[in-house]
Amino acid sequence: MKVSVVVFPGSNCDSDCFNVMKDVMKCDTQFVWHKDHDLKKPDLVILPGGFSYGDYLRCGAIARFSPVMREVVQFANNGGTVIGICNGFQILLEAGLLPGAMLANRSLKFICKHVWLRTENTKSKFTNRLKPAQVLNIPIAHGEGNYTADPDTIKRLRDENRIVFRYSSESGEIADKFNPNGAVENIAGILNEKGNVLGMMPHPERASEDILGSHDGRGIWESLLESAGK
């Protein structure tokens, strides 16, 4: 699988994603600079976390207009596989590749800690190696991860099985007290209509090696390898 990790000037999880894909998952991995127009023909594009252009206006608002994002939108519209993690998710929302928007965490604080996620859809190309309702231990690190959308959109996401991860307890119980940021329906990750674009707030790249305390994030990379067939 050939992977392109997009680098915005304020990306800070770019090298983490790069290391996991290259050294842990042994994929052919490369960086793509935000001013570039060539995605380098990947099977997977990763929009990593960080604060793309400082994010002083809104997270991801300016990144959306970068040259590379034009390519990413086209790539996604042609069915290419894209995962946006944390700030990458925010950029996908701003770019209109995924529905909804992010508000400040309800605590109004930046939160960095390990959380539990229940897998809600195991049919997607991002989750086919996970078991139904499998609970993953993956960290979050964000100040604006409070996902929101109008009720119709939420209903559609639910009906079309596009909510992929929800914040839960260790045993998989979904309740408000396990919701770290106030996201609607404990939503941690969603798919686009065609199922080729995933946005998620938690960082699977930080949970892909035992030495870092969890390897649960690997399930996502393994699913992608499986669906890429290489």
């Binding site: 206006l57 608002a61 701003e94 529905p99 909804g100 928007a101 508000l103 929101t148 959308a149």
Partner: peptide, 9 residues
């Protein structure tokens, strides 16, 4: 509508 405002919210 392009930049200053996220019309979703």
């Amino acid at each position: 509508e392009k930049l200053l405002v996220n019309t979703v919210i």
